[in-house]
Simulated scan of single mutants.
Amino acid sequence: MYYIVYGFLYLCSLLPLPVLYLLSDFFYTVVYYLIGYRKKVVMQNLAIAFPEKTLSERERIAKNFYHKFIDSFVETVKLLSAPDSFFEKRFTGNWELVDQYYEQGRSVQLHLGHNFNWEWGNVVLAKRVRYQVLGVYMPISSKPLDRIFRKLRSRSGTVMLDAHHMARAFLPFADKQYCLGLVADQSPGKVHKAKWFNFFNKKTAFTIGPAKNAIRNDTVVIFAFIARPKRGHYKVTFSVATEQPQHTTENELTSTFVRYLQNVITSNPDMWLWSHRRWKHEWKEGDVMGD
């Protein structure tokens, strides 16, 4: 099954990007208007985040989100055949901000949210910075797709660490210089270990694992946001959160990221993954607030 799926997607990847975007436009119509994939979840999330906006304004954000959501799929397919140079000229960023810490002998952690297109970002990051790039990977239930995505995400040298065995997988790199990329807005799997923060005026569970890891290993923490100036082109902006994580606390560092995340989502609402159930957990009396 793997070879059938891979072969079909590889053939699709040979199509020029403009043609893939025509397919994306078609699938957008099917997904949004006919199937309505997670449309209820998306609209509920937008209502939580932007109660001040009218229904028509939230629907406009939803439509733009679905366009970018489908685009991200066809763009990921392109990773199967296009050379690294194809992506490097379409994905730019202030890479020098990250590399300056390599010269200082420091390791760094990149904290970002679920915003498009992180798959291209992973490939280009590994080529543009001097670090060994590490990424945390949540296995996909479909074995063929899991194998394909692991192949894609490691194509430029990124080492993927299994999220289920993170501590053990990280051990070989603990005493080396590394750049660890973390999608830090995941809804926590173990909500009883999470801390709760006010995110879009709603108590929201966040894992403190990224902050805990940064403090324990004294890694520079850098926040990242990916913008899309135009279709098929992205620009990542890195900003330093702290150079001295051991002078802060897990709560403070996580709270800083939560505020950052809310600001960049508010400024670019259609770039975030509204289809994931970010508010599936409800705060109850006794849960620990982090801010």
Rank of each mutant, 00 (worst) to 15 (best):
A82V: 03
Y10I: 11
G157M: 09
V191R: 06
W95S: 07
W120Y: 15
Y178P: 00
K39M: 06
G157Y: 00
L152R: 08
Y10D: 01
A126Q: 06
F91V: 01
N64P: 02
R58Y: 08
F69N: 02
I61Y: 03
A241M: 13
Y178H: 13
E88K: 13
V41A: 11
H247I: 02
R277Q: 15
L145F: 15
R216T: 14
R231L: 09
Q244K: 15
N94D: 09
R168Q: 14
A194N: 00
T219D: 11
W272S: 06
V258K: 03
G189H: 10
I61G: 05
K78Y: 07
R168F: 07
P144L: 08
S141I: 10
E119M: 06
G105L: 02
Q132L: 04
D287Q: 12
D185I: 03
Q244Y: 08
A167E: 15
S13I: 01
K284A: 00
A169W: 01
F65S: 11
R216K: 15
F26T: 15
M166H: 07
R155D: 06
V108I: 15
T256A: 15
F170R: 01
Q109L: 13
L171D: 00
R259W: 04
Y2V: 13
A62T: 12
S24F: 09
G93C: 04
D291Y: 09
R38H: 05
F223Q: 03
F65H: 10
F170T: 05
N201T: 03
V42E: 07
M166P: 00
T254K: 06
S239C: 07
V124Q: 10
A169E: 14
T76Q: 06
E119W: 10
V258A: 06
A163D: 05
A126E: 01
K53E: 04
R168H: 11
E250N: 06
I222V: 14
I226H: 00
S142M: 11
G209A: 15
Q186E: 15
T92P: 04
L14C: 10
Y32I: 10
A169T: 07
A205S: 12
I226T: 15
P51C: 12
L273F: 15
L80F: 08
W274K: 05
F8W: 14
L161P: 05
D185C: 05
V288P: 08
F223C: 07
G209Q: 07
Y101K: 05
Y66C: 00
K143P: 09
L161R: 12
K212R: 13
L9M: 14
T242R: 01
L134R: 05
Y32Q: 02
I208N: 09
L79Q: 03
D270V: 01
R38E: 07
V123H: 12
S154R: 05
G135I: 01
F65E: 03
V5C: 11
F149Q: 12
M43E: 11
T54C: 03
C12P: 00
K151D: 11
T92N: 13
V133C: 05
Y234C: 05
N198L: 11
L80D: 05
E96T: 11
